[in-house]
Design a protein around this nucleic acid. Sequence first.
RNA 1: GUCCCCGUCGUCCAGUGGCCUAGGAUACCGGGCUUUCAAUCCGGAAACGGGGGUUCGAAUCCCCCCGGGGACACCA
Length: 445
Amino acid sequence: MGPPEAGGRMRPMNSVRVRFAPSPTGYLHVGGGRTALFNWLYARHHKGTFILRIEDTDRTRSTDEAIEQIFASLRWLGLDWDEVYRQTDRFDRHREVAVELTRRGAAYEKDGALWFRIPRDGATTVPDLLAGDVTVQHTELKDLVILRSDATPTYNFACVVDDHDMGITHVIRGAEHLNNTPKQILIYEALGWTPPAFAHVPLILGPDRTKLSKRHGAGSVLDYDQRGILPEALVNFLARLGWSHGDQEVFTRDELVALFDLPGVNTSAAVFDEEKLLWLNHEWLRRLDPHRLGDLLADRIVGRGVADRATVEAAGRDKLARAAVLLRERGKTLVEMADRARPYLPGPIALPDDARDLFTPDVRAALRILAVRVGELDDPTAHGFETALRRVADERGLPLKTLAPAVRVAVTGSRVGPGLFDVLSVAGPEIVAARVEAAAKEDRS
RNA sequence: GUCCCCGUCGUCCAGUGGCCUAGGAUACCGGGCUUUCAAUCCGGAAACGGGGGUUCGAAUCCCCCCGGGGACACCA
């Protein structure tokens, strides 16, 4: 028989119910993101329920903006929740239970606050699914406030009441809570309630090996979106921090749901390695559908001010998708890709000063001819451009090794980039002809 | 300081007593390919924290030490 929900409904006993319980005192950082992910994966894997509970009992530090940020972060990560609660909505219930605790002699009032009494003797064992049995002597514990002077409940207390009322079966949370658990178990026992199962997942550390926190800089989940990281990549990366499935590194969301379970989770803390995230992002960039990636690229181009919306729309979806396919081979983030997308969009290109040595009189003469040929090109594929380029080089007695870099710089403004003929083909004859002609007029001095 | 957790390449993981001359990934170094940069391919360097046990045999089990982290709020 499962515990009754707040409303009194009964639930089947075997169904998994887990919750992610962030406090809205700031943005959601990747540590919290991973805790949310593990809970979500566990729920989805076991066909259970994923509950989101906003722990806003600290009314002076909680903000609505933070709540919105948390929602937005979870949505971006693709972690959908089945139920959502706000702890402040349940204050009456918390007070009711506090009274019950007092009636049972487990709580007492002092200085206006209500305190929970820790039994003098004995010890409490947390049967942790990951760490094993963790026993703490009661002498190590101190009585704790459960109701503040202003009658609002504190974390360790509200948490117990809500986990119980909401029928939580597994509490999956960060290892920093392991020390709180004996106190919470004592509260369950004082109330005659059965505690849920606990699984304390290892911490995520910053480069300095201390718990990842806001002071490590780029901690916010949404920052990663800002930096051009794909949610697929962050989810994949976070999942692999503390969890594994053999030697597999790349996982789709569906694979994660199918494979994730608590027994596969580690017990030691992990350092957040930005380099590996970037590698995974690159992997995911290359796996995305071209048109979807093209759309993401289009937004990013506008967002970064590389080109305006009208220009991007004029280029068209197909062209953006083709450009994205070229760009993703050497970009690790959407930001890098967007910042290199200019060559594929209409408009002039600025030539770098240090590349002017490429435009010798011979080269400029060849470029003039090439511009004409490209204007008349009837096969605007990579192959068509290659043929045209080779022919001009041949006619002018210039090695391709000399002409190609000049054309590249003329069209893209850079000496490096994707395969030249692919670049020309995606940019298209019109853009190529105009830029090659403009470069041919460059007077190097 | 006290209590709790943890300890395999720089980093993330594999490894659950013999398949380990310890495997994969990333990052790094060298080479091939290429108009360039990537990608890719080939090669390289790189770890079981230390000491005791247990065992025919230990990265795997036990103990001690050392190291790292976390918690010690009317924060969560």
